[in-house]
């Protein structure tokens, strides 16, 4: 089946990238790198909720689901293989449910979602007259590690399909520690298996496999380091566009085949405790300001990070 071909390719991609990047990269999406033999553990908790969503382009509420809450806790680890090559592994545990009262009385779900493995490689790292420029490339792979049902929206833990991400990050930091960062990502998404043999996606589909649309995303960040680089503050815009897919039909449930577009803005603060070497905390908030077939999600999160050397 095609899915198997995909898995082989994904594996091949991960291996080849690993071997071929003449082994000479904190999250797969920022510009921070750990040095070789350094590792970082991150524990992130976030809380999101929405009470409105876009059905196609129509923003609406729906008392059947009322307010949907989503809590996520994610342990993640990053390891510096080389000064310019980092590997990341993380998996979130997620719990979803509607608040009372709601008209649908649907049970929420909980469980581990997708395991993500990513490699980040810094291929440009250069001092300029008035600042510093760096560029990084990330290749990431994620896949569900539990048999959660993606076709149970809006409560499902995720879209239930493998994903390959190719990301390019470019950052410019001034000597006064202001920085601008841009990132563009191509997201290849595979199929998710529903538990029914028929579904409608602008026509009949006689299969349990649903095509999760591929997507492109872009991120623009402005930030500043303060207090001798112990406090980092940043504001970000994040946009995602599915490259295909159908719209949620009127007053009907969403499904993984939907064309999802997201425009989101956010704020983040990260603080490193100088007296305790390696310890940092992060807090963030973001919210979706416009979208298509997506919830108007508001997310607030906190995290704790700790760096250490795993080899001398």
């Amino acid at each position: 089946m095609r899915k198997k071909i995909f898995f082989l390719n994904a594996l091949l991609a991960a291996l080849l990238v690993f071997v071929n990047m003449k082994l000479k990269a904190q999250t797969p999406s920022d510009a921070l790198m750990m040095e070789s033999k350094q590792a970082c553990v991150l524990l992130d908790y976030n809380f999101s909720s929405f009470n409105q969503y876009w059905e196609g382009e129509l923003k609406r509420e729906n008392q059947t689901i009322a307010t949907v809450q989503r809590k996520s806790i994610m342990p993640m680890m990053a390891v510096g293989i080389l000064d310019d090559l980092n590997v990341f592994v993380g998996v979130p545990y997620i719990k979803t449910a509607s608040t009372e009262t709601n008209g649908g009385k649907f049970a929420g779900v909980s469980g581990f979602q997708d395991l993500t493995v990513a490699l980040k490689y810094r291929w440009l790292d250069k001092d300029l007259n008035k600042g510093h420029i760096s560029s990084l490339a990330t290749i990431g792979f994620s896949t569900p590690i539990t048999n959660y049902l993606s076709d149970y929206m809006p409560y499902s833990l995720g879209f239930g399909a493998p994903e390959l991400s190719y990301r390019l990050i470019l950052q410019y930091e001034t000597n006064s520690h202001w920085y601008l960062r841009g990132a563009g990502t191509y997201l290849w998404r595979g199929y998710t298996e529903a538990e029914r043999s028929y579904y409608y996606n602008n026509g009949s589909y006689y299969t349990a496999w649903m095509d999760v649309p591929n997507a492109m995303s872009a991120e623009a960040v402005i930030g500043k380091w303060l207090f001798d680089k112990s406090l980092q503050l940043e504001m970000a815009y994040f946009g995602l566009r599915s490259l295909s897919g159908d719209d949620i039909r009127p007053y009907n449930a969403a499904q993984p085949t939907n064309k999802v577009n997201i425009d989101r803005i956010g704020f983040l603060a990260r603080y490193y405790f100088k007296p305790i070497e390696g310890l940092g905390v992060v807090a963030y908030h973001n919210q979706v300001i416009n979208g298509r077939n997506t919830p108007e999600m508001k997310t607030t999160g906190i995290g704790i990070t700790y760096f250490f050397n795993f080899l001398k």
Partner: peptide, 28 residues
């Protein structure tokens, strides 16, 4: 660097090739 770019391009092409969708819309 060139190798990496080339490799990425090949990989991307492979992925795109393998993502050709083949889902039945009627009983063949």
């Amino acid at each position: 660097m060139k190798n990496i770019l080339l490799l990425s391009a090949v990989l991307l092409a492979l992925m795109l090739f393998s993502c050709e969708k083949d889902l039945p819309t009627y009983y063949e």
